[in-house]
C-alpha cells in the first residue's frame, strides 16, 4: 500500500504546487498575499463546468478556465491592488482588499450555484485505471501530472528564458530601477497576475475533475495549504513551491494512511513550525536571496 499512497501523495501534491505557484508568483513579484487566490481557483472550475455543460470539449474548457482565472485575477489587481499601490498602501491594505475580493467572488458563485455542490457531468473524462507493479493509477491522474509538468516547464521557461520574465524579475528586485531602465511595471503586473490566475484556474479544473466536487468555497482549504507550501518552500520561490507542494501532498497522504484519524492537519502544521525553526526563510528561501544578491 505504501507505493500506492506515495503515488496518491505526489498527485495531490502536484495540484497543491500548481495552486501555490500562482500564489507565490504574486507574492514574490509584488509582495502581496492575494487571499482571493482561492476564489480565482474556484472561478476557473466554474468556468470549465459551465463550458462542459454547454457541450464544449474538456480541453477547450481547460483553456477557458485558465483565461477566466487569469482575467479574474487581473481584474482584482486593477480594482483592488492598483489603486492602493498608487497611494503607497499596498501591504496590509492589499491583504484586506483581497479578503473583500474573495468574499465578493465567492458570494457571486454561491448565487450562481445556488450553494449546491456541482460536478462535471459523468463521462466528461474517461474513467480508466491501469495497474503497474501493483499500483493503481487512473488516466486522469496521468493527465494531471503531465499538465502540471507542462505548465511548470512553461512557467520556468517564461521566467528565466524570455525578456518578459527578465522584466518580471527586474520589477520584483527593484521596481524603481526597473522603471528607470524602461520596464513598464503595469505590463509586468498584468503578466504576473494573469499567469497566477491562469495557473489557479487550471488547478481548479483538475481538482474539480479529480474529486467530483465544484463548490463556491472549494478554494478555502487549498488557500490554507498554499500558505504552508509557499512558507515551507520559501516565499516567492518557484522551485520551493513545487518541492514543498509535493512534500505536503506526500506527508498529508501518509498521515491519513498510517496515523490515527484527524491528525493530518496537526502534523502538517507542527512540521511546518519545526522546519521554520530550523530554516526561517523556508526550504529554498535563503538560496533565492543569495542568487538574487549575486545577480545584483
Amino acid at each position: 500500500m505504501i507505493a500506492q499512497q506515495l503515488l496518491n501523495g505526489l498527485i495531490t501534491g502536484s495540484v497543491y504546487a500548481l495552486f501555490a505557484l500562482g500564489f507565490t508568483l504574486v507574492f514574490g513579484t509584488h509582495k502581496i498575499l492575494n487571499l482571493a487566490h482561492g476564489s480565482v481557483f474556484m472561478s476557473g472550475a466554474f468556468a470549465a463546468y459551465f463550458a462542459v455543460l454547454n457541450g464544449l470539449p474538456l480541453w477547450f474548457a481547460m483553456v477557458l478556465a485558465m483565461l477566466c482565472g487569469g482575467l479574474v485575477c487581473y481584474v482584482i489587481e486593477l480594482a483592488a491592488f492598483r489603486p492602493l499601490r498608487s497611494r503607497g498602501q499596498i501591504e496590509f491594505a492589499a491583504l484586506i482588499a483581497s479578503i473583500g475580493a474573495n468574499l465578493m467572488i465567492s458570494s457571486l458563485a454561491q448565487r450562481i450555484s445556488n450553494t449546491k455542490v456541482l460536478r462535471f457531468p459523468f463521462g466528461t473524462f474517461p474513467v480508466q485505471f491501469y495497474t503497474v507493479m501493483g499500483v493503481r493509477i487512473s488516466l486522469l491522474q496521468i493527465v494531471i501530472v503531465c499538465v502540471v509538468a507542462i505548465l511548470l516547464a512553461g512557467l520556468l521557461f517564461y521566467m528565466y528564458r524570455t525578456s518578459f520574465g527578465r522584466q518580471v524579475r527586474a520589477v520584483s528586485g527593484n521596481e524603481r530601477a526597473a522603471r528607470l531602465l524602461g520596464v513598464s511595471p503595469n505590463v509586468v503586473f498584468f503578466q504576473t497576475f494573469f499567469i497566477s490566475g491562469a495557473l489557479a484556474g487550471m488547478a481548479g479544473v483538475l481538482i474539480g475533475l479529480s474529486f467530483n466536487s465544484i463548490h463556491f468555497l472549494m478554494g478555502e482549504p487549498y488557500l490554507l495549504r498554499a500558505f504552508v507550501v509557499v512558507v515551507l518552500g520559501g516565499l516567492g520561490s518557484i522551485t520551493g513551491a513545487v518541492v514543498a507542494g509535493l512534500l505536503l501532498g506526500v506527508i498529508q497522504t501518509l498521515t491519513v494512511a498510517y496515523l490515527p484519524t484527524g491528525l493530518s492537519d496537526a502534523i502538517i502544521f507542527s512540521l511546518l513550525f519545526i522546519i521554520l525553526l530550523v530554516r526561517p526563510s523556508g526550504l529554498f528561501g535563503s538560496a533565492i536571496t543569495a542568487t538574487a544578491a549575486r545577480r545584483q
Partner: peptide
C-alpha cells in the same frame, strides 16, 4: 476513520 464535512480529497483514505 474521520473526515471533515467540506473534504473532497479522499484518495489516501480510499486506498487505505
Amino acid at each position: 476513520e474521520g473526515i471533515k464535512q467540506g473534504d473532497t480529497d479522499f484518495s489516501a483514505l480510499s486506498a487505505k
